[in-house]
């Protein structure tokens, strides 16, 4: 329990950061017209692919002879890439159709 409290105190700035980010997210999305809801959902979907950065960090910190972890890490980076690349490309395809007007 104490370590959790200490964690909160240590990361005070981080917590401010999180709270403000939540409001930025709401503010930025709040004005999107219905027309763009699907591409928006898809674009947001691509952005949370940033989780791949975490997978890469784990891989970089793994010892080269720990095959089990490397295997999991490889899979994680692969899935994260699918999320990022697939997400952005599909969003681009949806939005491409709007441009000709």
């Amino acid at each position: 329990m104490e370590s959790i409290l200490a964690f909160i105190a240590e990361h005070e700035l981080m917590i401010y950061f999180i709270i403000l980010s939540v409001f930025v997210g709401i503010e930025v999305i709040g004005k999107v017209p219905t027309v763009l809801h699907t591409p928006l959902m898809s674009g947001a979907n691509a952005i949370h692919g940033v989780v791949i950065v975490g997978a890469i960090i784990v891989m970089l910190n793994t010892e080269p002879d720990n095959y089990a972890l490397l295997g999991l890490g490889f899979l994680a980076v692969l899935l994260g890439t699918l999320n990022v690349v697939g997400g952005f490309v599909v969003t681009d395809r949806m939005l491409e159709m709007f441009k000709k007007k």
Binding site: G25, I29, V51, V53
Partner: peptide
Amino acid sequence: MLTGGILVGSAGTLL
């Protein structure tokens, strides 16, 4: 990761 994750977390909830 925090910015990306939280943005999508709050935006997704609102949506």
